[in-house]
């Protein structure tokens, strides 16, 4: 059962379109697997819509265009035909293992997979500055050395499982970690994760220098 959900304030920001694409996509992947959050998102959208359009103090709106001319222009355009979304699954392959990706990723460009040991990573090329998103694959028996985060790290488990000292995770779990957490995830059977990281990882054990390449690899 999915145990980790996005917090309410994150859902409200999501509904209002105020989050980076990477985080909203993560919430979309989660809510497609979580009925409870998907219903809450629908409910929140209704609320935000009501709030937005119940303003009454807008009579003095000053448009930067000629309203009548715009209405004329718009009403001359043709209605849009109903397009059935192309839900052909997109897939990614890491070392011979192929994974089907969530629909929300179908227009996201992926970087070439790179490997360190039992970790494979493909960047998701969203161009969001210091926020880096990746697909991260841990091979069976692999893990990530104990670390903490300067910023935040969102992990959305897509397939397989992994665990850390806080517990075990299942596909659909939306896990948010920040500088208050230290963890050392390991995956017994292997897994694929969608990750959003806002700053490089900070390894907490003695051999920092040796691990630095992994830190930037995962970020």
């Amino acid at each position: 059962m999915i145990n980790h959900h996005p917090k309410l304030n994150l859902l409200i920001q999501h509904v209002n379109g105020e989050l980076p694409a990477s985080i909203s996509a993560g919430i979309k992947i989660h809510s497609d697997m979580c009925k409870q959050c998907s219903e809450q998102i629908a409910e929140l959208t209704k609320h935000e819509a009501k709030l937005s359009f119940s303003q009454t103090n807008v009579d003095d709106a000053e448009f930067g265009f000629d309203v009548d001319a715009l209405i004329n222009d718009i009403t001359q355009t043709q209605p849009e035909p109903e397009v059935i979304p192309d839900n052909k699954p997109v897939a990614v392959t890491f070392r011979g293992v192929t994974y089907t990706l969530p629909n929300v990723m179908k227009h996201m460009e992926l970087g070439k997979p790179a490997q360190i040991g039992k970790l494979s990573r493909s960047r998701i090329l969203l161009d969001e500055g210091h926020i880096h998103s990746s697909l991260l694959r841990i091979e069976a028996g692999g893990g990530i050395p104990e670390h903490t985060h300067n910023g935040y790290e969102i992990t959305l488990l897509l397939e397989g499982n992994f665990k850390d000292d806080m517990g075990e995770y299942v596909p659909g779990d939306f896990i948010v970690l920040d500088g208050n957490h230290q963890h050392q995830p390991v995956s017994e059977q292997g897994c694929l994760c969608y990750t959003v990281v806002s700053d490089s990882l900070h390894f907490t054990q003695g051999i920092n220098k040796l691990l630095n390449p992994i830190g930037s690899f995962i970020y």
């Binding site: 379109g17 694409a21 909203s24 227009h107 996201m108 969203l126």
Partner: peptide
């Protein structure tokens, strides 16, 4: 409105015209 705003902001901030709003919402 939310989708239009999201795509405009994304174009501005990331210089991407991928209109991801349609996939997210």
């Amino acid at each position: 409105m939310r989708n239009v705003t999201f795509d405009i902001l994304r174009k501005l901030q990331s210089n991407k015209e991928d209109n991801l709003s349609e996939d997210i919402w």
